[in-house]
Simulated scan of single mutants.
Amino acid sequence: MIERIETGIAPSSAPINDAIRAGQHVWLVAIAEDPITGEIVAGGIEAQARRCMQNIEISVRAAGGTLANLVMVQIFLVDSADAPGMNLVYREFITQQPYPVRATVVVKELLAKGLRIEITAQAVLD
């Protein structure tokens, strides 16, 4: 059974979800969007990466887990020069071993204007 996880981040009227659960598995996606205003966070990569990780944390908690339940993280950046700043923020959030498997990919652009990062993740809940 597939279940939409209500996080309060993705608009309920849109044909998208930011968290889906199937059994013990949860798939998550986050952009640097403020969940209150719906606006892309201003600032550089660190501000956007922090908002993305906060949104991932909100979503995994809404599913009943924590960041320690993440098993895979995929990060999409529009500029490889943003990797050091993104890594600094990532280390603030991912602190427990075993660390999730991670892939970082540089892409030409992301859909929302001004967006420098998007993160997808998978979690397994107990």
Rank of each mutant, 00 (worst) to 15 (best):
Val71Phe: 01
Val106Pro: 08
Asn87Gln: 11
Asn17Ile: 04
Leu88Lys: 15
Glu92Phe: 06
Gly85Leu: 05
Glu57Thr: 13
Gln96Thr: 15
Lys108Thr: 14
Thr66Lys: 12
Leu110Ile: 07
Asp79Met: 08
Met86Tyr: 15
Val89Gln: 11
Asn69Ser: 12
Arg116Cys: 03
Glu118Ile: 03
Pro100Val: 10
Ala62Arg: 13
Ala63His: 05
Leu28Glu: 06
Met53Ile: 00
Gly114Trp: 06
Ala32Thr: 01
Leu88Thr: 14
Thr7Glu: 08
Ile5Ala: 04
Phe76Trp: 05
Ala30Gly: 07
Val124Tyr: 03
Pro11Tyr: 02
Met1Gln: 04
Leu67Ala: 07
Glu6Gln: 14
Asn69Asp: 15
Ala103Met: 11
Pro35Met: 04
Ala42Asn: 05
Asp18Ser: 09
Val78Pro: 01
Val26Arg: 02
Val71His: 03
Asp79Leu: 07
Gly38Arg: 11
Pro35Cys: 04
Gln96Gly: 01
Ser12Glu: 14
Gln54Trp: 00
Gln97Arg: 13
Ile117Thr: 13
Leu70Ile: 10
Val124Ser: 04
Ala32Tyr: 01
Pro100Met: 10
Met86Ser: 02
Ala81Cys: 02
Ala103Gln: 15
Val105Pro: 00
Leu110His: 09
Val60Gln: 06
Ile40Arg: 00
Arg51Tyr: 00
Pro84Val: 09
Gln74Leu: 10
Ile58Thr: 15
Val29Glu: 01
His25Tyr: 04
Thr7Trp: 09
Ala63Asn: 08
Pro98Thr: 09
His25Trp: 02
Ala32Ile: 01
Ala49Val: 01
Met1Asn: 08
Glu46Ile: 03
Gln74Met: 11
Ile2Met: 12
Ala103His: 12
Val105Arg: 14
Ala47Met: 10
Ile2Tyr: 11
Leu77Trp: 12
Arg102Trp: 07
Val101Gly: 09
Gln74Ala: 12
Thr66Ser: 15
Gln74Glu: 14
Glu3Gly: 01
Val78Lys: 00
Lys113Cys: 01
Leu67Gln: 08
Gly23Met: 06
Ala103Leu: 13
Gln97Asn: 09
Gly38Ala: 07
Gln96Ile: 13
Arg21Trp: 01
Pro84Met: 05
